[in-house]
Design a protein around this nucleic acid. Structure first.
Length: 921
RNA sequence: GCGGGUGUGGCGUAAUUGGUAGCCGCGUUAGACUUAGGAUCUAAUGCCUCACGGCGUGGGGGUUCGAGUCCCUUCACCCGCACCA
């Protein structure tokens, strides 16, 4: 009987579905294990062969954990709100809900064909009102809380108001926007609107006018992580800076906890480093500089207070509020001109051109609090308004940017570190002995840093300060296809919707474009008002809103009273293994951690880190093929001969190329323009050129998993994707190698059938060799699964099956444990064989085989025998033999004796278990 | 510029963590069975050499009886951040 993957796979997929094999309960005596994939955005193009890579890896882990007796939660869903569906809707008029539904169906059917062990009953999608009810709910909670830096947690707004009644905000240590200090009397004297505005400055979800990334082409604002090199991540359209009133989440309040939490989770070093960079903690101090002939005190931030004696000028960001306050009459015009010039440059221009030094003197002077010297104040676009205080003290000797500026405008440069040569470049290193530095002379840089901050605090001119680069997340998008904000406006004041009114459903509109006046599409919705006639917020939430807590919802997907019940959360707790791409390193993975910490503060969840272990799968790139057309003809020349002609490279569909040899007939049929193609062949073949590129339609290098499943089966696809190389590594897809894995499954299959082709296994006792093959394989595979090093476990299975084939082993006692160990990788074929072996229950209810150590340790060891350090031959000896035994044994060896003839042994070095070396003369 | 990572056959990769470098697979070559083979099976396959033998883990140096693995140095490529004071 032949291995018929089609029959086997469709039969067992249906069986698993009918028997709810992978349905998990929230109640179990078994220990829990939660394996999660980053849920996909269901795009119109369907899955390509790269998408399942991570899903296969996590599925193997899930199935393995089940065999080890865990209750495994392994769900799947869809990140279904988002820009592409809406862009498509604008172009075609098709409602995003319709196209999204179609895409989801396609994804689901593609995923099911690969045989994943998902609990489909927990499937969710972010655009479902039953789901986004809880996204809206979380937003309202953030709106209703503030962050107390003293207790290091979020607290209800009510506690803040009570404190204001009692003491004003003087003792409040909170994460907040700029707000003046006020005593209780002032608070009680405020109007309701004034109070609201003060409170808003403390909320974790708040509205504010800020500089935002505005993408005119998409008609929406974007978060920092959605902008790459001044272009939108989706679509690649230009992004400009623009002040706008937006909803924001005070993610920055959690900066320290987001940083600290990284030490407690098992993520790759590079990913943690990316998050640390994004959070961007820097420790230093804030310091006030008095302005000559002015009341203004200028606040700067520096991490190098130790270099204060070397300050030779100050620089303000052109947008800084100080600029207008200090600029002298004489320089007003020039300063205005400079501001106008820099304002004209786009973000992209400013970023791509970081080497042109420009600036303008303001006419004002600051007083160095340490030396009393007058130092000129300049403005320049190399100082950013959004970081620190938008003002710096410039120390050209020890900062390369300040140095370039000083050189350009002929400002003095005072070296402060002994031996530092600053004649051609600055000395930025933070080491050496201080000089020219008054109090700090003779100290090393680290000592001076600390001494300087203490001195600043002693003089009362500033204080120690930690700055973070992490900004609050802009949370509104002027788009249709997203979660509506559960707020409305009454007399211009924000009113949160009552929680009992959730979800606030997305209304129908007739066009998905912004209005003529530039209002978001939602303002087209007719009669979309509260019963009292107030208007709802018309922007919607961004993509990361729905994906920030989806892992919690899987724990309790149908709960209509809570995001997740206490019991469900207490049972599942957190994600034990999370698999997904690096592209979410500073977006989703920061927001989710923030969300979890916030919900932890509220007591909704029991853990403050959502993802215990995270593995980033690499990308599967496409392997493109080319043909070479002789310019101006319909002749195509094979790769090896193309240099003899003037040719043009053309992408050719990889599906009509095999092992880089073009199928000539298929090529002629491929497109009408090639019907009459003629070929210049080499060795009778047309060899195509190749390149590794992103998998994309336009390069004709997309390989669809469905066609692989059709031809070779899901088990082959799964094994092959794992066999390709380490899962964390990016690698090109090469359909060529798949045959090897397919052969392996056929070999496995044939072990179970006798010469007549009938299923037959023997109940004989296994031999030592067979037991060795089995136990070594199981041991290796188990170790590999735990390390997610699946490529080597597939190899181990191949070795094992080769050995068993050679041994002609068809013994039940060997084959049964092998197929159990293999079942996470190739679930269908193993399930089929398992049932053929007479089992009623699914192989998923079996137990992962135990290893008998007796058969895995070699009792002989291969020793290299070296003479004068040079290996001459090797010899097998007992592994645990003592030094003397080995020596005696080796000296009897004939080959050694012939090599030693006429020489004397000066010394022998014998390390049991390792090596044998004779030093001879 | 800063940070992280990777360099091993024609290709994807492996190496008991310092102990016979190249497992497994692809590709290639030869053979067997076949009307046929893009099925299956057998054998060979790092490079140079008829051979003996020599050389080989990006290059150079070092530690060691012994280095793909450890140290120094250099080169190349990939990823992330990028005027963050």
């Amino acid at each position: 009987m032949e291995y018929n993957h089609k029959e086997i796979e469709s039969f067992w997929q249906k069986y698993w579905e009918d028997h709810e094999t992978f349905k998990v309960s929230n109640k179990s005596d078994k220990p829990k294990f939660y394996v999660l994939d980053m849920f996909p955005y269901p795009s119109g193009a369907g899955l390509h062969v790269g998408h399942p890579l991570g899903y296969i890896a996590s599925d193997i882990y899930s199935r393995y954990k089940r065999l080890k007796g865990f209750n495994v939660l392994h769900p799947m869903g869809y990140d279904a709100f988002g820009l592409p569906a809406e862009q498509y809707a604008i172009q075609t008029g098709q409602h995003p809900a319709v196209t999204t539904e179609q895409n989801i169906c396609r994804y689901r059917s593609q995923l099911k064909k690969i045989g994943f062990s998902y609990d489909w009953s927990r499937e969710l999608r972010t655009c479902d009102p039953k789901y986004y009810k809880w996204t809206q709910w979380a937003f309202l909670q953030m709106y209703g809380h503030w962050y107390n830096n003293d207790t290091q947690k979020a607290e209800p707004i009510a506690t803040l108001m009570a404190e204001f009644e009692k003491n004003g905000n003087q003792k409040v240590n909170a994460a907040h926007s700029e707000v003046p200090i006020f005593p209780a009397e002032v608070w009680t004297g405020m109007s309701q609107a004034e109070k609201n505005s003060v409170i808003d400055s403390y909320r974790l979800a708040y509205k504010a006018k800020t500089m935002v990334n505005w993408c005119p082409k998409l008609g929406t604002v974007l978060a920092n992580d959605e902008v790459k090199d001044g272009l939108s991540e989706r679509g690649g359209y230009p992004v400009v800076q623009k002040p706008m009133e937006q909803w924001l989440l005070r993610v920055s309040a959690y900066a320290e906890r987001l940083l600290e939490g990284l030490d407690r989770i098992d993520w790759s070093a590079s990913l943690k480093e990316m998050q640390r960079n994004w959070i961007g903690k820097s420790e230093g101090c804030e310091m006030y500089f008095e302005i000559a002939d002015s009341e203004v005190k200028m606040k700067i931030f520096t991490t190098r207070a130790d270099t204060v004696y070397g300050v030779t000028f100050m620089v303000l960001a052109p947008e800084s509020e100080y600029v207008d306050q200090i600029t002298t009459e004489e320089y007003k015009e020039a300063v205005a001109q400079y501001k106008a010039d820099t304002g004209k440059r786009t973000e992209l221009e400013r970023m791509s051109d970081t080497h042109t030094v420009s600036g303008q003197f303001t006419g004002a002077y600051a007083i160095n609090p340490f030396t009393g010297e007058r130092i000129p104040i300049w403005i320049s676009d190399y100082v950013l308004v959004g970081y620190g205080t938008g003002a710096i003290m410039a120390v050209p000797a020890h900062d390369s940017r300040d140095y370039a500026f000083a050189k350009k405008f002929n400002l003095p440069i005072i070296p402060l570190i002994e031996g530092a040569d600053v004649s051609t470049e600055s000395y930025d290193a933070k080491e050496g002995i201080m000089m020219n530095s008054g109090l700090f002379n003779g100290m090393n840089v680290l000592e001076a840093k600390e001494a300087a901050i203490q001195q600043v605090e002693k003089l009362g001119i500033g204080n120690r300060k930690i700055n973070y680069r992490l900004r609050d997340a802009i949370f509104s998008r002027q788009r249709y296809w997203g979660e509506p904000f559960p707020v409305y406006y009454k007399d211009g004041q924000v009113q949160p919707l009552d929680i009992t009114k959730l979800p606030l459903e997305l209304p129908e509109i007739d066009s998905f474009l912004p209005t003529e006046s530039g209002e978001p599409p939602l303002s087209r919705a007719k009669d979309w008002k509260t019963p009292e006639g107030y208007c709802y917020e018309t922007s919607t939430m961004p993509g990361f809103a729905g994906s920030s807590a989806y892992y919690l919802r899987y724990m309790d997907p149908d709960n209509n009273n809570a995001l997740v019940s206490k019991e469900a959360n207490d049972y599942w707790q957190d994600v034990d293994l999370y698999v997904g791409g690096t592209e979410h390193a500073v977006g989703h993975l920061i927001y989710s951690r923030f969300w979890e910490k916030f919900l932890f503060d509220l007591g909704v969840v029991c853990k403050d880190e959502p993802f215990k272990k995270l593995v980033n799968q690499g990308m599967i790139q496409g392997r493109s093929n080319f043909v070479y057309r002789i310019k101006g003809t319909n002749q195509y020349v094979s790769l090896g001969l193309k240099d003899q002609f003037d040719t043009q490279e053309i992408h050719v569909d990889v599906n009509i190329v095999k092992n880089d040899i073009l199928d000539l007939e298929a090529f002629k049929q491929w497109r009408p323009e090639f019907n009459n193609a003629q070929f210049v062949l080499e060795d009778g073949k047309y060899i195509c050129g190749t390149a590794i590129e992103k998998m994309s339609k336009s390069m004709f290098n997309v390989v669809n998993p469905d066609s692989i499943v059709e031809k070779y089966g899901a088990d082959t696809l799964r094994l092959y994707e794992m066999f390709l190389g380490p899962i964390q590594q990016s690698k090109p897809w090469d359909t060529g190698g798949i045959e090897g894995v397919y052969r392996f499954l056929n070999k496995l299959w044939r072990l179970f059938f006798n010469a007549e082709g009938n299923f037959e296994v023997s109940d004989e006792q296994p031999t030592e060799a067979e037991l060795k093959a089995l136990n070594k394989t199981v041991q290796k595979v188990e170790k590999d699964i735990i390390d997610l090093s699946y490529n080597t476990s597939v190899s181990a299975f191949m070795v094992c099956i080769n050995e068993l084939t050679t041994l002609k082993c068809n013994k039940r006692s060997i084959l049964e444990p092998i197929i159990i160990a293999l079942s996470p990788f190739a679930p269908h074929i193993t399930e089929e064989l398992w049932h053929k072996l007479g089992h009623e229950e699914s192989i998923n209810d079996a137990s992962f085989p135990n290893v008998d150590e007796k058969y895995t340790v070699d009792n002989t060891k291969c020793y290299p025998v070296a003479i004068n350090g040079k290996t001459k031959f090797t010899i097998d000896l007992p592994a645990n033999a003592a030094k003397e035994e080995i020596e005696q044994e080796v000296l009897k060896n004939a080959k050694l004796q012939s090599l030693l003839a006429g020489k004397t042994i000066v010394k022998s070095i014998i390390i049991p278990g390792k090596m044998i070396n004779f030093v001879v003369k």
